[in-house]
């Protein structure tokens, strides 16, 4: 079976409470997103990868032309967002551990360290987000959906059945909490 079919089956199964299916679905989504990312990069090197685009692409591939194949979009987004976050953090960890004693050739320090600084911040963000999840799960999910899966406020509002304005304000709060955690990490 094609991976897309796998995921759909699994997602649908997971929806009904099958936790193994859930875990497997997640793993597959993770792999698929990475593959998508690489493909995009290879095709257009230098293009900035948009998580939105990746997630959308995956969703499209999973649902085909029939919009009802995945029974619960939210479920998919939740998984995809989580996977995206994980991918980013994995890469960030790899980059920060590789940078000391790494290749010492003519890489433009400014650009290399833009990435490294970003990586460090990504890791800090991840930690802050975990803290936030302990405090307010909804806000944390909002961050995952908006920041990591790239969903717009409108899309999120649709999905959750709320006003876009409310979602925006929630985002402000979430961001403030995260920033508070992250700067505390430096000064604490």
């Amino acid at each position: 079976m094609a991976p897309e079919a796998d995921i759909t089956e699994l997602l649908n199964a997971a929806q009904s409470g099958d936790s193994d299916a859930q875990a497997t679905a997640y793993a597959l989504v993770y792999d698929e997103l990475k593959r998508c990312a690489r493909r995009q990069k290879a095709f257009a090197p230098g293009s900035s990868l948009s998580p939105t685009a990746l997630v959308s692409e995956l969703y499209l591939r999973l649902s085909g032309h029939r919009t009802d194949r995945i029974r619960n979009r939210s479920h998919f987004f939740a998984l995809a967002a989580r996977a995206m976050r994980q991918i980013i953090v994995d890469h960030a960890r790899r980059r920060t551990s590789a940078k000391r004693g790494g290749v010492a050739e003519h890489t433009d320090v400014a650009t290399l360290d833009l990435a490294t600084a970003t990586a460090e911040q990504a890791i800090e963000l991840d930690a802050a987000l975990t803290t936030l999840a302990g405090r307010d799960a909804d806000l944390a999910q909002l961050v995952e959906w908006h920041f990591f899966a790239g969903l717009t406020f409108e899309e999120i509002a649709d999905e959750l059945g709320r006003h876009e304005r409310t979602v925006r304000r929630d985002w402000e709060l979430a961001r403030a909490c995260l920033q508070q955690s992250m700067s505390a990490a430096i000064t604490s």
């Binding site: 948009s50 980013i88 970003t118 911040q121 920041f147 995260l178 920033q179």
Partner: peptide
């Protein structure tokens, strides 16, 4: 905290992946 945006949020996740 809200008033001091961390640089990571400037791109809303777009490009974050690309950099990594």
């Amino acid at each position: 905290a809200q008033a001091k945006p961390a640089p990571i949020f400037s791109s809303d996740g777009n490009g974050l992946l690309g950099n990594l």
